[in-house]
Amino acid sequence: MEGDIAAIGKGLVFGLGAIGPGIGIGYLVGKAIEAMARQPEAAGMVRTTMFLGIAFVEALALFGFVLSFIIQ
C-alpha cells in the first residue's frame, strides 16, 4: 500500500476499534456506579467485577491499537 492510504487505514483501524469499547465501558461503569449507589455494602464486589468487565472490553480497543502498528 502507498504510505498515505496506509496512514488513513491505521487511523481508521484504531478509531473504529475504539468506538465500541468506548460505548461499552461507558455503560459498564455507569451501571456499576448505579449499583454501588443503590447498594453501598456490595461496592467491593461490584468494583471487582467492574474492573474485570473493563479489562475484557478494553482488550478489543487495544487489539485495534496493536493492529494499527502492524499495518504496513
Binding site: A55, E58, A59, L62, F63, F65, V66
Partner: peptide
C-alpha cells in the same frame, strides 16, 4: 493472548 496484549498495548501507548 488478551492477557499479554492488554499489558503490552497499554504500556506501549
Amino acid at each position: 493472548l488478551t492477557l499479554a496484549v492488554r499489558l503490552f498495548a497499554n504500556l506501549v501507548a
